[in-house]
């Protein structure tokens, strides 16, 4: 297990470095950040001062080395737009995004898992068709469209829910539902197909033959075996949740990291973008790591594979 964690960790550091270098150079190659920030009608003097202040007059590799050196000291730079340390700017908005993601993820699991299980158990019957139709609608509907529709219905017509912001508990409802809808569709569909695969396995019939009731067999044997593909999809979903959050935060004027990323990209606020990229990469790496660990917990065969004797395979 130590070897497993060490090798994962070394790969993670490499991944972060590569992603960071990619974001760093791409943003600077794509256009002159000084002009993008100050506007095309800025005086050459102002541009020169701006460049010198933020070290943009140096050659790119030198800039990168400086940036890395600062990172090593825990200095993530200063936001070009706000003049405050990046870490402060970003940490103000991170909790709001985490709340939205957590709620959206929770809702997707809470509805998607039982819906998929029900569909698998009542395969081919009305409830199965209902879940499948719902899931197709769910993941084929673009989330910004869904968000705008919800706004139209609940804010403009019914006047029940606030249009944006994150001030009250009710303002969570529409962003969460919008974010979760697509993932409910994905989770229910994968849960269904994974469960159907497991429900045909002989050990379920054997468990029934030992007198275990249907519900026990479902929870004890079917679901844990079906969980592995579901965990895989859930891990992949996390990246999608972050992307979805950017769109939804813009639609609902949610003061979160997704919206900050969008405004920073539009205004070429390089240090903020780089820091958010680091955060995103770390999130994805952590998710993948969590998925790998979960695999090992869920399926005892995964950790053993390297040391299995060959004898059994001769048959």
């Amino acid at each position: 297990m130590t070897m497993f964690i060490l090798s994962k960790l070394s790969r993670a550091v490499l991944t972060i470095l590569l992603a960071l270098a990619f974001a760093f150079f791409l943003m600077r190659i794509a256009g002159d950040p000084a002009l993008a920030f100050l506007g095309v009608d800025a005086t050459p003097e102002a541009v020169a001062i701006f460049r010198e202040k933020f070290g943009l007059d140096q050659p790119l590799p030198v800039q990168f080395l400086y940036y890395m050196a600062n990172l090593a000291h825990g200095d993530f730079g200063v936001s070009l737009r706000e003049g405050r340390p990046v870490i402060v700017v970003v940490s103000e908005v991170v909790p709001k995004t985490l709340q939205l993601m957590g709620l959206g993820f929770g809702l997707a699991m809470l509805i998607g898992l039982p819906a998929g299980i029900l569909a698998a158990v009542y395969r081919g019957q009305f409830i199965d068709r209902l879940v499948m139709v719902g899931s197709v609608i769910g993941f084929s509907l673009p989330n910004f469209l869904l968000g705008l529709m919800l706004l139209l219905i609940f804010t403009l017509w019914l006047r029940l829910l606030p249009s944006g912001g994150a001030d009250t508990a009710v303002s969570f409802i529409m962003p969460t539902v919008t974010l979760a809808t697509a993932f409910i569709g994905v989770v229910s569909r994968y849960t269904r197909s994974s469960m159907i695969g497991v429900l045909n396995r002989p050990f379920l019939r054997a468990a029934r033959a030992r007198g275990l009731p249907a519900s026990t067999v479902l929870w004890r044997h079917a679901l844990p075996n079906a969980a592995i593909p579901i965990v895989t999809v859930t891990g992949l979903m996390f990246g999608g949740l972050l992307g979805g959050a950017s769109v939804i935060e813009t639609v609902f004027a949610w003061p979160g990291m997704g919206r900050l990323l969008v405004t920073s990209v539009l205004s070429s606020d390089l240090p903020v973008i780089q820091f958010i990229v680091i955060l995103l990469v770390i999130t994805m790496i952590f998710t993948n790591f969590a998925v790998d660990v979960l695999y090992r917990i869920l399926d005892p065969r995964i950790g053993h594979r390297g040391s299995m004797p060959v004898a059994g395979s001769a048959r």
Partner: peptide
């Protein structure tokens, strides 16, 4: 009591 043909398959692979 019932005993099945595929003994390994009639045991849950992720349980001891």
């Amino acid at each position: 009591g019932v005993i099945f043909q595929d003994a390994v398959g009639s045991l849950d692979p992720i349980r001891t």
